[in-house]
Computed example of a mutant assay.
Amino acid sequence: MGHVSDILEAKGHDVLEIGGAATVLDAVTRMVEGNVGSLLVMEAGRLVGIVTERDYLRRVTLEGRDERVTPVSEIMSREIAYVTPATSIEECMAVMTERRIRHLPVLSEEKQVVGIVSIGDVVKFQSQEQRVRIEFLTEYISG
């Protein structure tokens, strides 16, 4: 059974972030450049929110806001679900499914950001784990 730390070991601990005073256009630009669907919103080294593509669609596009002047702090999600490196992959998937979210910050015991995992990262990990199991069983049956 894998843990979130296994995913971070493979993908790294880099996290794209933005400040709450930045414009939504700055956030969208950073997401596009980074090829990601979310950014952590940090203030003075502390996690204060997360801004996602969904936040943009719901709180900018549908509400008719101007992304060139609207600050990230007005559209970000403030209730942040998170996992720790010790969280099992199954528990991580359960949180994502229950909350209907695709990105989870990974926080240390001291509540410091140590990474982020996406549903794509989790699916990739599960797929690789299944492939290893299949190879092992195939070798066992064949040999």
Rank of each mutant, 00 (worst) to 15 (best):
H3T: 15
V4Q: 02
V4R: 03
D6P: 02
I7K: 00
L8Y: 04
V15T: 01
L16K: 15
L16W: 09
I18R: 06
I18M: 06
G19P: 03
T23S: 15
T23K: 07
T23I: 08
A27W: 01
G34S: 08
G37L: 00
G37N: 06
M42K: 07
R46C: 12
L47W: 10
L47Y: 11
V48F: 11
I50N: 00
R54D: 03
D55Y: 08
D55W: 07
Y56D: 05
Y56W: 06
R58Y: 14
R59W: 12
R59P: 08
T61D: 10
R68G: 12
P71S: 07
V72R: 01
S73L: 10
S73H: 09
E74T: 04
I75T: 03
M76L: 13
M76P: 01
S77F: 06
V83H: 00
P85A: 11
P85R: 03
M93N: 15
M96A: 05
T97P: 00
I101M: 02
I101Q: 07
H103I: 05
V106C: 05
V106P: 01
V106N: 02
S108E: 03
S108C: 10
E109C: 11
K111S: 11
V117G: 06
G120T: 13
D121C: 01
D121R: 00
V122F: 01
V123Y: 15
K124Y: 07
F125L: 04
Q126T: 12
R133E: 09
L137P: 05
I141E: 10
